[in-house]
């Protein structure tokens, strides 16, 4: 290991200066347990301060360092260089997003689509409960289990950057937003079913997914967006059918006997 080097072939692009992207190679001394993010930080601190790369937690929790490594969307911080094939490592920004500079992409529209999926409980009968809670919503452990995996999403964008539909369909919400739409449709506390269905059962909605499954293959948190989207399709079909099973909706509030939610009388 000592004395060995790894070559990073980084795609550089500054839309305000460059006509087209170019690839620059950097040799980085290899260390045991080195991740691609470690190598990029070495490049930025020692070899080229101008390299634009976004990162924060370095432990696959924040979802900032999504990029394409050796042709596949991954988090740089949890990709060990030793896990990649030998030879130079190709590092590129994620597909399907506008490039801000180098490896940093513009996630604004991605977050807007997440917001459009209404990622919060919609309550009709007690809207004031959300602002000033008097207790907790009653929910069985099995009901929680039916959607909890989709709450693990860290919004890194890897899924939407790998989706074949998202590569051409500018109006497609993408795997992230669709799996979040399912997460709330499956939630027994939610009462926004009609509005949610109108949004996903549209020309450029859930039916533009054809289960290529790459979103789930690249997801770093086991959210399995493809599973959420297929279950969303079933939910839409069931809701649109006169014979479909209807889910329990609008779980009641269980008043906290101790006063407010912090348990203070």
């Amino acid at each position: 290991m000592a004395g060995e080097e790894v070559v990073l072939k980084i795609r550089r692009f500054d839309p305000s200066l460059d006509e087209r992207p170019r690839v620059e190679a950097f040799a980085v001394p290899l260390k045991e347990g080195m991740t691609v993010l470690d190598a990029l930080i070495y490049v930025k601190s020692r070899l080229d301060h101008g390299l634009a790369v976004r990162f924060s937690c370095r432990m696959a929790s924040c979802g900032s360092c999504g990029m394409k490594i050796d042709g596949r969307a991954r988090l740089a911080c949890e990709t060990q260089i030793s896990s990649l094939p030998r030879g130079a490592v190709a590092v590129e920004p994620m597909d399907n997003f506008p490039i801000v500079r180098d490896l940093v992409v513009d996630l604004e529209r991605f977050f807007a689509r997440h917001a459009a999926a209404m990622p919060g409980l919609v309550r009709e009968r007690d809207p004031e409960e959300q602002e000033s809670p008097t207790g907790e919503y009653l929910m069985a452990p099995g009901e929680l289990e039916s959607f909890v995996q989709f709450t693990y999403c860290i919004k890194c964008g890897l899924c939407s950057s790998s989706c074949p539909t998202a590569s051409t369909d500018a109006l497609f919400p993408g795997p992230q937003a669709l799996s979040q739409a399912y997460r709330f449709l499956a939630d027994p506390r939610d009462e926004g079913e009609e509005r949610r269905l109108e949004r996903v059962d549209a020309e450029h909605g859930v039916w533009r997914c054809h289960f290529a499954g790459t979103c789930s293959a690249v997801c770093p948190k086991g959210v399995d967006p493809a599973l959420g989207i297929q279950l969303l399709k079933r939910h839409v079909m069931s809701a649109r059918s006169p014979f479909g099973r209807k889910k329990r909706r609008g779980a009641p509030v269980f008043p906290n006997p101790n006063g407010d939610l912090l348990g203070q009388p």
């Binding site: 059962d201 039916w207 399709k233 079909m237």
Partner: peptide, 9 residues
């Protein structure tokens, strides 16, 4: 026509 109706077809 709803997209789900087309998909059902």
């Amino acid at each position: 026509m709803r997209e789900s109706t087309l998909m059902q077809m």
